[in-house]
């Protein structure tokens, strides 16, 4: 009986723990971004090919999530938000996460190449490499600009979706990449201003802690200013249209207004109203990106209906 008792204690993983390794919430965002990139592209894939493309782009994203959890297990164990992840909680062994991450990386890249084209597969491989090696292993722990660099990895999915359909990178794919790339820093730093994080305990340099909150506020404003041209120029490309143009004008003005408000106020004012402005800008930034991509889809729909 003692032998059987020794198995008790919840040390063995459930299937869901392996799913958690793939960061399913991030995967759902990857699916949406890649789907938009694929649908607005001026080429059509067979529905089965399109399904495979989205699935394997998402799986590649999940694989990089597993590799990230493997590498960052020491940080995750320190921070409250991440302590319950499969590796720090002891449900999945680090070696298992590494093996799953590597295997799924290989499967997703090869299958995307077989389903669509080699260029898309190469881009997916580069994205995984970038997120895991360049961001997680190399730069995340040494520079407060880590959010900017990490944002690049998150910006690849619509570009890969586009390349899966067309076979090459074009200005439209590049601008969709830049849209997410430039959007990530102000979005995340707005969050960092009102979230009491424990990145300091985990020794991860965050702008709010290395350069202070005043500097972070300035960063939110200037990165939003830098984001606007990329977002607006997309309206004048082949995937832009009246819906996107209208959405871009309104949403960019609103984002600029919010970022300006963040920049112009100090900590005393922010603490007085419990970071109301920072919280609303953070929430708005989520809608900003989502609605711009929906607007791209709407214009693509209009083009299809218009013949």
């Amino acid at each position: 009986m003692t032998d059987i008792r020794s198995y008790e204690g919840g040390g063995e993983a459930r299937f869901g723990d392996y799913v958690q390794l793939l960061k399913p919430r991030v995967m759902s965002l990857v699916v949406f971004a890649a789907l938009v990139g694929l649908l607005v592209a001026p080429a059509t894939l067979h529905p089965v090919e399109a399904f495979c493309a989205i699935l394997f782009i998402a799986l590649g994203g999940g694989a990089s999530g597993a590799l990230n959890m493997w590498w960052d297990a020491d940080i995750d164990a320190v921070m409250r938000r991440t302590q319950s992840r499969p590796i720090p909680s002891g449900r999945v062994e680090p070696g298992e996460a590494l093996a799953i991450g590597l295997a799924l990386s290989g499967i997703s890249v090869v299958m995307l190449g077989l389903a669509t084209n080699l260029m898309a597969a190469a881009l997916l491989a580069f994205t995984i490499f970038f997120y895991v090696v360049i961001y997680s292993v190399w730069l995340k722990r040494i520079t407060p600009q880590n959010i900017v660099i990490g944002g690049a990895a998150g910006a690849f999915p619509p570009m890969i979706g586009w390349v899966a359909a067309t076979g090459s990178v074009s200005i439209e794919a590049f601008l969709m990449f830049m849209l997410i790339f430039m959007w990530t820093p102000p979005h995340f730093w707005a969050l960092a201003l009102f979230m009491k994080s424990d990145y300091g305990d985990a020794k991860v340099p965050m702008l709010t802690e290395t350069h202070g909150r005043k500097s972070t506020r300035a960063h939110v404003w200037w990165y939003t200013v830098a984001l606007v041209p990329f977002s607006v120029v997309l309206a004048f490309t082949t995937i832009g249209g009246p819906v996107y143009m209208a959405a871009a004008l309104i949403l960019n003005l609103m984002f600029l207004r919010g970022a300006w408000a963040i920049w112009r106020r100090d900590e005393t004012a922010a603490e007085a109203d419990r970071y109301r402005v920072e919280k609303s800008v953070f929430r708005f930034s989520l809608y900003y990106l989502f609605l711009l991509f929906v607007a791209l889809l709407a214009d693509a729909g209009l083009r299809v209906m218009g013949g």
Partner: peptide
């Protein structure tokens, strides 16, 4: 039937479903 067996069965079933779906997908492709 220990709780451990249930957990393992769940994992095996999950993996089986994933593999079957993968086979169907590759065939369709």
């Amino acid at each position: 039937e220990h709780e451990m067996h249930h957990r393992r069965f769940g994992r095996n079933l999950g993996l089986g479903v994933v593999l079957a779906a993968f086979v169907v997908l590759v065939f369709a492709l």
